[in-house]
């Protein structure tokens, strides 16, 4: 049974690569019974979205150097 500590590892990992089916199911089951981790996964997703939203920043073009 997946515990919160490992669940947060999968929440982070899913932002980097596709999880295996087993990992996906384990995370989903855990989230269905754990409100704290449901908050956590939303916050990880939010932190992942911030890059282009930071006030000091703007959307960065990928692979482009004009100098």
């Amino acid at each position: 049974m997946l515990m919160c500590r490992e669940a947060t590892g999968l929440m982070s990992l899913k932002l980097e690569k596709a999880l295996s089916l087993r990992e996906k199911i384990a995370l989903k089951v855990h989230l269905s019974i754990c409100p704290a981790c449901r908050h956590c996964v939303r916050q990880f997703d939010l932190l992942h979205k911030i890059g282009n939203r930071h006030p000091a920043s703007l959307r960065m073009p990928e692979r482009e150097q004009d100098d």
Binding site: M3, C4, R5, E6, A36, C37, H39, C40, R42, Q43, D45, L46, K49, I50, R53
Partner: peptide, 28 residues
């Protein structure tokens, strides 16, 4: 980090348990 935030059985420490932040768009 992990030892500080989680109990030895893998549950959140009480003080470290995430709370609700509200709607993402409003937060940002």
């Amino acid at each position: 980090t992990l030892d500080r935030l989680f109990q030895s059985d893998g549950h959140w420490q009480n003080a470290a348990r995430p709370s609700h932040w509200g709607e993402p768009e409003q937060v940002l």
